[in-house]
Amino acid sequence: MKPTRTLWTALRLTLVLTVVLGIGYPLVVTAIGRVAFPAQAAGSLVRDDAGQVRGSALIGQSFLGSDGTPLPQYFQPRPSAAGYDAAASSGSNLGPEDAGLAAAVAQRRADVATFNAVREDQVPPDAVTASGSGLDPHISPQYAAIQVARVAAARGMTEDAVRALVAAHTQGRTLGFLGEPRVNVVTLNLALDG
């Protein structure tokens, strides 16, 4: 083939495959999603009792007051490098020797301990580290456990009632070995309000 003919062939093939792969394929998958898995395809949205969409079960939210302090009536999520801005996912990308991150971790440990009235050595690692996405909806069962008393007090509920709700929103390892045990803060807090 002459060089120019090779180029034209390449261009024509690319264009045809762009139509198939770039338009046909995503539309087919979108159609399948809409029919077979409408809830997941739309983003696993969660609604309150009034039917209003209040977020996604997969995307973490911040539970801070207007002054930026954590609200005691809600379970608090992990720290987030993205400030739980779902339109700007991000981790901190700070390394293990970063002085600013080290100071922040120490500060978070002290703050979490004070806020929940527990000892600093009771604060688990996920409570003081930011996730990779900045949108992690989960915390460890340990972090949930140290928050139970504070949430119960703020809501005038019994600790057992709060603990039962936590248990209902806790997932273990899939098949016993995949991932880590976790509590979904978004669905748990929505249930507390409901």
């Binding site: 901190s92 990308n93 700070l94 991150l101 971790v105 440990r109 580290t129 460890s140 991932g179």
Partner: peptide, 21 residues
């Protein structure tokens, strides 16, 4: 989990998702 930050945090979880560990 060697290093200043993982030691302070208790585990090398910075930048990792809770569901994956």
């Amino acid at each position: 989990g060697a290093g200043t930050v993982p030691q302070l945090a208790g585990a090398a979880l910075e930048g990792k998702e809770q569901r994956f560990g």
